[in-house]
Nucleic acid binder design. Structure first.
Lengths: 396, 396
DNA sequence: GTAACTTAGTTAATAGGTTTAACTAAGTGG
DNA sequence: CCACTTAGTTAAACCTATTAACTAAGTTAC
């Protein structure tokens, strides 16, 4: 379980400065409009330290000053916000159905987004295509003058914990691809951070990092699409993304929910993906791979088979949610992925199962809130951009 | 997911010193016999810094110097070890079947251990009994002269993430017990750190912290006893123990492995505990609560019912292991808990199932090693002692 | 056997970060 | 208008790690 942006275990004064700078930025991110005094109170740093760091961040275009915040019977403080005018973060999501790119501000506001539908191809061709799109986007007047802090790329499969290598993406047919190295020659002029992560991890990170208002303590994001995966994020100023020994953290699609059940393409029986995944639903309903799943299902209307299949898939999703609740116990659960577009016939049974069963262990506890992202087209790409920000904040 | 001993997110020079001191101690713990130069190389600190901190730790009885370590063609370095002569760590495990107490050195060597069999009773009576045992142990000549760094207590149920409160222990009949506060009046003379944690979390922590040789990157410990739980630990110098929003991390006994299966005492159906737990095995074989489970099963010899029940339980355990592998992806899996004493008829099917299925996702990867602790009587208590050490190391 | 070399560890001066304490700034309330 | 409160800045002090030069203690080459 290696964390992405965790502070190292030993360090010098420069490290301490980085830590505090990052902590101050995180405070402004979580409490927009905070004053220097607010930050000092929250971080336990002194006014002097906060003042100096804030001054530097203002000069470098990371923070901007806002209006005066009246205080009861004293000098009003100056509100501080992330400066959304001088930098840009890029995030790209390589999916089975195409590429999605996002450019956003330090606050997570999406400035530009592009989506290209294309069939899976080789890493090199994908990189060439992606580079072209990024170069074009980079010249858009909306962001051309901004300093680009880096590019985060997400892929639909486990990424090795230590090096940025995609281990396996069955839906793309890729094995052990160091995609950033493939991409780099196509974008020689690009400087800034380069990051690679699993799509669900990045989405979870983004939902946590760019959360409106004070983020929850921890988030588990379930990505239900062609396959099914999940990502977990926690930590205050340094969000942690556990990856595991082999980068398999969150590969819940192959957790067993029905021992002795249907055969999965992974070779085991009763994997979650045999019940709730794009391919399982296609198989159950006889929908071809080249058909659009959502359209095909809508076309069948109130067909009973469709209803039963979606209900079964939803209930399996509910089981997965419950098991994640009992294993990772996040503060918030987020559901995303293209399957959410199949609508309430799938979502409702999942939520109902989870609601009905989650709380029997600790009666009287507040329930875990579930957030459904009905259209998560750019969620992963935006999450990748968030990771760029988190990394750059340490270097700022 | 709140970590126990993680560095805070912002800090002053004193914090930096703590961080480096703890990091140096951790290096000696993981690499016994390391020299000052070795430590400097591993921690990226300078020789000067390491020298100063080591000097202070030698004077305070945390480290001791050993023999000279010959170096190729240069002055030999002085080996450093954790000083196992001046301090003592106490750990106590409150279980369904009684109390277990351990006193150990900074290196995790058990100096004294006591076990008392008793039926569950009230928190106050348990605290009184525990205090008596601890006081007696404290006067044992083997540890009477040592400085006690603190006491860690483990309980068989989820502990709230922020405060040391046991949320629920069905097997003890306890609900929302701030056990340390109950215990404190019984041990007024005791100073040092007081810690409370879930039994599986503590066991996992101990297996990681006191690991012989370089510990793995992460450990998941599965505790199979009356109920079933798990704990996860990761992190180099600051082992992290995720607890989750409600302290439910690792409550895998109530993850669903057989939807629509048997009813569990938690109210759901098909929980793992309905297949692999002390009470499930008793129920299946008609063994009374007051009988010793292991003895009753041995008495039945090669009875076919016993074989089938244990095999089923083992396979369910294998499913749990596989699901944890796909959700948390630890570097090492550890199996413990009193059920391990039921022997190979249970363990073998679990290992076989895991072996046969774990690797189908990432072919060619090295397999996840599984360690079975056949007698884990003192594993949790020792883990609690490890947590005391980790906490004290920051204050040293 | 001695000089050259290598590695370990210590020391004093230096650099750099945060804090302390005193200050200025800018409001409210009587 | 003065007392009070809170925000933010500044310079000196303090603390920590680093640098660079040193001593210590071994091996290797000749």
């Amino acid at each position: 379980m290696v964390s992405t942006f965790a502070p190292q275990a030993a360090g010098d004064l420069n490290f301490l400065k980085k830590l505090n700078r990052s902590s101050i930025l995180a405070t402004v991110r979580r409490y927009p409009g905070a004053t220097r005094a607010d930050i000092a109170a929250r971080t336990q740093l002194t006014k002097a330290t906060v003042g100096g760091v804030v001054q530097a961040l203002l000069e470098r275009g990371w923070l901007r000053e806002g209006e005066l915040q009246p205080r009861g019977g004293g000098r009003p403080g100056r509100a501080l916000y992330l400066d959304d005018a001088h930098h840009v973060l890029l995030g790209a999501d390589i999916g089975v159905r195409g590429l999605r790119i996002v450019a956003c501000t330090l606050g997570g506001e999406v400035l530009l987004q592009r989506s290209v539908i294309q069939a899976p191809t080789t890493p090199d061709e994908t990189a060439a295509h992606l580079a072209e799109l990024i170069r074009a986007m980079r010249h858009d007047p909306l962001i051309a003058d901004r300093h680009c802090l880096g590019l985060g790329v997400t892929v639909p499969g486990p990424v090795a914990p230590e090096q940025p290598i995609l281990r396996l993406a069955p839906n793309l047919g890729w094995i052990d691809v160091a995609f950033l190295e493939v991409l780099r020659p196509h974008l020689p002029e690009f400087d800034g951070a380069w990051l690679l992560d699993n799509e669900a991890n990045a989405a979870a990170f983004g939902e946590f990092y760019f959360h409106d208002g004070i983020p929850p303590e921890s988030i588990v994001y379930i990505s239900a699409a062609s396959g099914i995966g999940s990502g977990m994020v926690t930590g205050d100023n340094f969000p942690l993304v556990p990856r595991g020994g082999q980068g398999l953290v969150g590969e819940i699609g192959h957790s067993i929910v029905q021992p002795g059940g249907l055969y999965c393409h992974c070779g085991n029986r009763g994997c979650a993906e045999t019940l709730v995944s794009g391919w399982a639903i296609r198989a159950a309903l006889g929908i071809a791979d080249d058909e659009n799943l959502e359209a095909a299902i809508m076309a069948r209307g109130d067909d009973a088979d469709v209803g039963i299949t979606l209900r079964r898939a939803g209930e399996a999703l509910g089981v997965l949610m419950l098991n994640l609740h009992h294993t990772l116990n996040p503060t918030t659960l987020v559901l995303g992925g293209s399957l959410m577009q199949l609508g309430e016939r799938l979502i409702e049974p999942a939520l109902a199962y989870f609601e009905a069963h989650q709380n029997d262990l600790l009666r009287g506890t507040q329930r875990v809130p579930v957030k459904v992202i009905h259209d998560s087209t750019y969620t992963a790409a935006r999450g990748a951009a968030a990771q760029v920000m988190a990394k750059a904040a340490l270097e700022a």
